[in-house]
Simulated assay, not measured.
Amino acid sequence: MPIETTETVAAAHAELDTLDPLAMARCFIAAQQGAVAAALAAGDRIGAAAAAAVPRLRRGGRLLYFGAGTSGRLALLDAVELVPTFSWPAQRAIATLAGGPGAVHQAVEGAEDDAAQAEHDLMALSPTADDVVIGVAASGRTPYAMAVLRAARPLGALTIAIVNNPGAPMLALAEHGIVLDTGAEVIAGSTRLKAGTAQKIALNTLSSCIMVQLEKVYGNLMVDLKATNAKLVARATDLVVRLTGSDTPTAERTLQACALEVKTAVVALRCGLDPVDARARLSGRGGSLRRALRDPL
């Protein structure tokens, strides 16, 4: 059985509790550099998983995240943030935690060991071959996450495993295995530290790569944001001004007429179209602002 590096006791930190608060803080922060290094080393695998996911999502598939404890909460955070950032439908980014919704705020003992419940939770979502199932577990052997991947693969869903231990059994259950080899933690076994940070980086990178490929970004601008508060409406207005060269009042009026859709407002102003025709032009080009502005009328 492979050594679980996330459970290894780091000799370098054996005197952790004797450090003064400043030295202790520096120790914890310095250790986080290992999370970045681990994510960089897994970059090609993350990119390959994103590339494999995009065709399924273009066909209407969903991102289905599963995990327990810290891993599950990080997966939930990634799913939730896709809605305001990219206007991704909430029903197409679903995170399920071992132990249910209550596990977000409080540990549910034994939930991560319940393989039968894991399969039940997956099947309750009626997964299809167009769905992307992402299992996240630092150890890479959490029964809940393993059961989800084991059940999802025969259904034809794309399966992705994100783990922190090389050789973890979850890797054999997924088409795309992503290893974030963060090694021993400053506090032995506390994977909410750099293992969790590496998972956050990997999840951010995976979903962001997917959304860029799905035409949710123009250049590096967040043109598909959901403007649900004053700050985001101001950001949306600034984007319209930047991309059209219009004055702020014109951008504000057009944005409001286009239901606060930045891409629609930009096409309307740049192509001289009303909101209905601008939206249709975008739709006919797969939601791509670049193609909507580039292709002949």
Rank of each mutant, 00 (worst) to 15 (best):
A259P: 09
G43N: 11
R192P: 00
R270Y: 08
V241A: 09
A41P: 06
E112M: 02
I94R: 14
T70G: 07
S246K: 10
A75E: 06
I29C: 10
A202V: 07
S139C: 04
A103C: 09
A292P: 04
G102R: 04
E109N: 04
E81N: 00
G156P: 07
A268T: 07
R290C: 09
T191V: 14
D78H: 04
A161G: 05
A268R: 03
T6N: 11
A151Q: 07
P249Y: 07
R291M: 11
M24T: 11
P143A: 06
A75S: 12
K263Y: 09
S246H: 11
V136K: 00
A118M: 12
A37R: 15
L63H: 03
G100Y: 10
R279Y: 10
A12E: 15
E109L: 01
R141I: 10
Q117W: 13
Q106W: 11
I201E: 01
A168D: 01
G43Q: 14
L225T: 00
G47V: 09
L239N: 12
G284T: 08
R73P: 07
L122A: 05
A174P: 03
E119G: 03
A95E: 06
P169D: 08
T142R: 10
A168F: 05
L173R: 03
V233C: 11
S288T: 02
A151C: 12
A39I: 08
D224R: 00
A227W: 08
M146P: 04
S139T: 08
